[in-house]
């Protein structure tokens, strides 16, 4: 029973707070760059506006184009039921381990890329092509980083990983440090942040993610945007699970959930600051320099793996 309450709470937090987190990041970024911000709650207003608008659909849009927003939203919400944010006691945690989680993100990306090609514009195809290129280099690095953690914990189940790392306490391990750096690099790539992609750009030739969803409008666009915000939120939660699950409530400790919620919000605040510092400090990379960026991520993950076997 407890588990179901926590599960519902988690999904509610994910859906409810993700826009606020994005708002927080945007606000910090404005401050860092000396601009006036629209406030932390602007994303909610944006979403509300998009939901209330009509949809303009291209004549030749097929069902895939209309199906994708719902699918993206669905997979991300399901992922939110799997990543332990508040407690490791999740009934849905058995549904998917961390590899399946990567697969869930992959299916959302697969369909987003398809809908980018559906209308038949040059920009859409360009976005899809680039997105799949970035993904195909990021995914091995991501799995390598995750494998390092799961070899350490002898499990790929997220709840289990969180428990093992939490009970082990703070033990400095080079493998985890490398895996964490790799994970940060990949999280930037997967969420289309600077230096891989610019979430705020509307300059056609530099777009990746935005180019795919150019033709969306109304509630479809709102769903996709919301799913994107939740994905960013989830990556923070995922990194917290894998590398710093402090404050999370254990299986036999339902009273720890409020503490976990506070810890989660704290972590989000801090991660937002880190993200903004990275994004402000770096410039967007040229497309073909991304291979070096993602190669560095892969190298980090590999070094993590090697130092797990050699040094630990």
């Amino acid at each position: 029973m407890n588990g179901i309450i926590v599960e519902t709470l988690q999904i509610a937090i994910l859906i409810g707070i993700a826009p606020a987190f994005t708002g927080w990041v945007r606000m910090l970024k404005c401050w860092m760059q000396g601009r006036t911000s629209a406030g932390m709650f602007q994303p909610y207003r944006d979403l509300a506006k998009l939901f209330s608008k009509d949809i303009v659909l291209a004549h030749n849009a097929s069902w895939i184009f209309r199906f994708t927003p719902y699918l993206c939203f669905g997979t991300v919400v399901l992922a939110g039921g799997i990543v332990p944010m508040l407690s490791t006691d999740l009934p849905l945690a058995l549904t998917a381990d961390v590899i399946v989680l990567v697969g869930l993100f992959a299916i959302a990306r697969f369909f987003t890329a398809l809908s980018g090609m559906d209308i038949g514009t040059a920009f859409g195809g360009m976005g899809s092509s680039r997105e799949m290129m970035v993904a195909s280099l990021a995914e091995p690095a991501m799995l390598m980083a995750i494998f390092t953690v799961s070899l350490l914990c002898k499990s790929t189940s997220l709840s289990r990983i969180a428990e093992v790392i939490y009970t082990a306490g703070f033990v400095a391990k080079p493998s985890l440090a490398f895996a964490f750096i790799a994970f940060i690099l990949i999280a930037l790539a997967e969420n289309g942040r600077i230096p891989v992609d610019n979430p705020a750009t509307h300059l056609e030739l530099t777009m990746i993610h935005e180019a795919m969803i150019l033709e969306y409008s109304g509630r479809h666009l709102a769903l996709i945007e919301w799913a994107g915000m939740m994905k960013l939120f989830l990556f923070i939660a995922l990194s917290s699970t894998l590398f710093y699950p402090f404050g999370i409530a254990g299986t036999d400790n339902p009273a720890g959930v409020p503490v976990a919620a506070v810890a989660l919000i704290l972590k989000l605040f801090i991660s937002g600051v880190v993200l903004v510092v990275i994004e402000t400090g770096l410039a967007k990379m040229r497309l073909f320099r991304l291979t070096e960026f993602l190669g560095a991520a892969f190298l980090m993950a590999t070094l993590g793996m090697l130092s797990f076997f050699i040094l630990e």
Binding site: D54, I55, V56, L57, A58, H59, I119, E215, G218, R219
Partner: peptide
């Protein structure tokens, strides 16, 4: 909301 079919925006 209504769905309006239109030309490709691009």
């Amino acid at each position: 909301g209504k769905i309006r079919r239109g030309a490709i925006w691009d």
